[in-house]
Simulated assay, not measured.
Amino acid sequence: MRGAIIGAVLVAAVAVGGWLGAESLASRQLAAAIAADPALDAAEIRPLRDPARLGVALRDVRLEDPAMGLRLPWAALSLRPLSPLTARLDLPETATLIQEGQERQLGLSDPVAWVALAPLNGFSPRAMQVSARGLTLDGQPLAGGLSLDADLVPLGAQAPRAARAAYDVTLALEEGQTAALESLGLGAGLLPGPVAGSGTVRLWLDGTPAPNAPAPQVVGWQTPGLEIAAGGIGLRLVGRLARDAQGRAEGQVALYSADSQAMIDMAGALGLIPDGARLLIRAGLSRLSEAPIDTALPGPAFPDPAEGELRLPVIFRDGQVVLGGLPIGPAPAF
Rank of each mutant, 00 (worst) to 15 (best):
P73C: 10
W114F: 12
W74Y: 00
Q158A: 14
D138S: 05
P160D: 09
P125H: 06
T94H: 09
A143L: 01
V56A: 03
D60G: 00
A52K: 05
R53L: 09
A32D: 13
W114V: 01
D149V: 10
P125I: 06
D151L: 14
P73T: 09
A159Q: 10
R126M: 09
L137H: 02
L135S: 02
D168Q: 13
A116M: 00
L135P: 03
L85I: 13
L152H: 14
R164D: 04
I98T: 15
A32E: 12
L70H: 09
A39C: 07
A42P: 02
A36S: 14
P141C: 09
P81K: 05
G107K: 03
A35G: 15
R126S: 12
D60A: 08
I34W: 02
S131E: 00
A33F: 04
R104T: 03
P84K: 08
A52I: 01
W74L: 01
A57C: 14
T96R: 13
Q140G: 14
V112P: 02
P141S: 08
A76C: 13
P92L: 11
V115L: 05
D65F: 08
V130E: 01
G156F: 10
P125L: 08
D60H: 00
R88E: 12
L106G: 01
G156D: 12
R133P: 07
T94K: 09
A43V: 11
A33D: 08
R53Y: 07
A159L: 11
A172I: 04
T170C: 07
L40A: 07
Q140R: 14
A143Q: 02
L117D: 03
S131D: 00
L85R: 13
D65R: 12
L155E: 07
P47M: 13
T170A: 12
A157Q: 15
L135W: 01
S78R: 01
R126W: 03
L89Q: 06
G101A: 05
Q105C: 06
G134C: 10
A57V: 11
P66H: 08
L137C: 04
P111C: 08
L85C: 10
L97I: 05
L82D: 15
S124Q: 08
D151G: 14
A163P: 07
D50G: 08
A57T: 14
P119W: 04
P38H: 04
W74M: 03
A39E: 10
G107W: 02
P84D: 10
E64M: 12
Q158K: 14
A57S: 15
E93K: 13
E93Q: 15
A87D: 05
D50Y: 06
T86Y: 11
T86P: 10
L135G: 03
R62T: 15
D151Y: 10
P111L: 05
Y167H: 09
G107F: 03
R62S: 14
L173K: 02
M128L: 11
A87C: 10
D65N: 13
A166S: 12
A33L: 06
L97A: 02
A150V: 04
L108W: 05
D110Y: 00
L173I: 12
E44F: 09
L152G: 05
S27F: 06
P154H: 00
P125C: 11
R62A: 15
L72N: 05
G122H: 05
R71I: 07
D37C: 07
D90F: 09
R133Y: 06
P125R: 04
D41W: 05
D151K: 13
L70F: 13
A87F: 03
T136E: 07
P125K: 04
L108N: 01
V130M: 09
L40H: 05
